[in-house]
Amino acid sequence: MAKRLSERRRERGTSSSAGRERRSKRAQRAHHSAAVGRRNPALTWGLRFLVVGYLLMLVLWPSWYVVQHTFADGLTGIQTALQDPDVQHALLLTAEVSVLAVAINLVFGVGVSLLLVRYDFPGRRVLSALIDLPLSVSPVVVGLALVLVYNGRYGWFGPWLEDNGIQIIFSWPGMVMATCFVALPLIIREVVPVLEEIGDDQEQAARSLGASGWQTFWRITVPGIRWAIVYGVVLSLARSLGEFGAVKVVAGNVAGETQTATVLVQQKYQNFEQTTAYSVSFLLAFAAVLCLIVVALLRPKASKESR
């Protein structure tokens, strides 16, 4: 359906060396900018203080408080929470839904990235703009949208699917779809720039050497974008584990059945089981921060490699 455009391709031929140059320039500039900063110590310190203070009040201190709350009685809080069957079930469900959603997004995300970068077709720009849409739609609206289409009673496709024995809303497929929706752009946003930077010279070379499309994809394309995929997956995982609004709408929120960890936090907190709420929050936050640290540690390594 799509036609390859070799003009674009040729422009890209030089882009990888340009990228290399840019990176080394950035390294040079690191020294440079220190000198710029030294010019006015009062201003530098003022800005530093402002930024650190702002982040401290907004993010760091509150986060620290959650940790304190969780471990107020040592590990007992977490232990009690983990013995609650509702908590166990919610955590397991969250993990299952997230892993499934990330897997689907991975396949879809890599496919769309390839489509956007390697092919030219009418509507490419529109698609590229639409991909970012889930980032600016309220999770509640996402849930509502899915309910309207897949609801078993009055949805567009819902009744038909239900007649065929597939229930989406108030069941796990709906939760997976909601999670996919909100995390959709993350992998694509990581992979697209890398695909653009590496260009398709290597893929063409592989094809000229007799590799089929499938072989080229696995042997050449995937190794080239593997770090981007890793970041995308980790970010998607963090986002999926933490999805609340959209899942709450489609899940039906039955404790022990379709209640995910985030929904559970809300319920427990409102039922004044604060220790449990804080413990589960801590676990979720810990997973999220762990994901961030993984990305932060991987990033410099990968950019070194591509240089």
């Binding site: 760091l60 959650v66 979720l284 999220a288």
Partner: peptide
Amino acid sequence: ALLDLVIDIPFALPTIVAGLVLLSLY
């Protein structure tokens, strides 16, 4: 580097947890 990491926390943190986090201090 730590500060750089902190910037991403609000993005990665589950929103419900973010609410709880803010509630604990404010």
